[in-house]
Design a protein around this nucleic acid. Sequence first.
DNA 1: TAAAAATACTCCATAGGTATTTTAT
DNA 2: ATAAAATACCTATGGAGTATTTTTA
Lengths: 304, 304
Amino acid sequence: MEIHQLRYFCAVAQHGTFTRAALAEHVAQPSLSQQILKLEDELGAKLFDRMASGVKLTACGRAFLPNARRLLCDLGNAKTEILEMAGKEKGEVTVGAIPTIGPYLLPDVLAGFSREHRGIAIKVVEEMTPILLDRLHDGAIDVAVVALPVPGEWIRSVELFQEPMFVVVPAKHRYARRDSIRLNDVKDEPFLLLKEGHCFRQSTITACRRARVTPNVVFESGQFETILAMVSAGAGVSAVPAMAARPVKGCRYLRIADHRARRRVGAIMLRRHFETRAQRVFLRHLAQVCLRRFGMALQERETP
Amino acid sequence: MEIHQLRYFCAVAQHGTFTRAALAEHVAQPSLSQQILKLEDELGAKLFDRMASGVKLTACGRAFLPNARRLLCDLGNAKTEILEMAGKEKGEVTVGAIPTIGPYLLPDVLAGFSREHRGIAIKVVEEMTPILLDRLHDGAIDVAVVALPVPGEWIRSVELFQEPMFVVVPAKHRYARRDSIRLNDVKDEPFLLLKEGHCFRQSTITACRRARVTPNVVFESGQFETILAMVSAGAGVSAVPAMAARPVKGCRYLRIADHRARRRVGAIMLRRHFETRAQRVFLRHLAQVCLRRFGMALQERETP
DNA sequence: TAAAAATACTCCATAGGTATTTTAT
DNA sequence: ATAAAATACCTATGGAGTATTTTTA
């Protein structure tokens, strides 16, 4: 039994086909096939049922999978421990963030962090959630800050805070003086929406649907700043999360009466991924900053 | 990092020199050196201090050792689990026993066991303790029944029972009618002793020393049956553990007044060794039989 | 100087690659 | 017909061997 065989086994179990697992592991599909066959031979049991479209874990495979994962994780942890003890661990964390969170949360987090932890370098990757998930899986990033929930057995999520959504209207809008609003009140207004792919677009649409509203979308953009500029120019209304509701000349933010109109923000990482000290320190700092800024009692809500 | 590197690392840590570790792992010393060097290179830290006579774990090595051991053990357990699930695990236990225990304990144990567990084959190896320890380490036997204590961090011991020692005298001896005796009473008698190497020989000598007695050894044998035959022929006296004190024509057994004159019997196995179902079943049966025969409240007394 | 680890090199087992075939839908 | 896994075969990396040198108590 070899370590790479365990890796390959986990990859196939995760991806569901040898071909895709081979891509993920950067080996040719036959190499992977051979190693799995060899592993099955040594264990005396088939681990996968080969179907025409992909593979399925057998009972033995299901029994073996958690052990294999834990072994790989322990192996990585043991190595990391020594690397850090020898001072060879660079102390670098690569953090991903979605575009609708990154610019509002990370500057604050990073400033404080680099002040308190001079030794640890932080890299930031800003992509949309599906890309961040890929980067997590291929090891390019260590942790990602995204909107929860993120389903998937491979993902460990820690909720950082929840933030309400606001409707944003032009300062000269007839509702601009109101304190709160229902989405139904703006159902006929021209609506500015985030581009396809941003998960907050989906949050907005979901909130509208709850209010029996089909937004009249007249403009799409990839960032809130553009949308806010358009709103202030009187082009229509939109919805933004609290962290994006910064004072902008010509914009008024109205609390949405529906308390379900909120976004959950959390950190996600690979369940199997081992943690370096730098990662632990960064996560703790991130949680502290969020707690301070958003005043939420932070419990580590693991999404199962 | 490779599995064999972990094995080699553990072997070197255990044996204290590359050369002896190489012998134990059945590889050439340079191969082992290379793999350890490669491991140290990958971990970025020296694991051993090389001295002229052998090696010594560095701080990193000490930190890594328990992880490496646990990983190897977990690896074996994961494999064993699947082997058993696939029905490929033969269900075979090889048990070692020292000659002064084997013939008195094992027949009873094995008879009942093979009746209750038809599927599991038991092999028996009868050797003296040091040999059994070697066999344990090279994997030839799974568990050994020996006299405790057996020191060594690699060994896990489970005490099965304690048995008193008896002095055995000829039927026509002047003390033959007595109920109990002190070793001092027979200090001038010709003494029949087990051969060098049997641990019960040492137990006997220790008991004598406690009684300020230097036995007058006139005969040595490797088995109690011979000694008992000699005693019954009037050649002298001896000491035997309770299980060997079977009715023999011409022999009388006298309780020794010193309650410290007793032998602890236990099962030992490698701490790092993973257990098969068959091994667990056998150990439970062994403990049950001992409990029934020797009526001791069985607590798993682990010797630390 | 003697015991042990490291080095130099040689060899071959095997992981991994490419091309192709088989299989199941 | 198509997608996926298995097979055949080749290459080359690197683990293990032998012989030798270096190191240090």
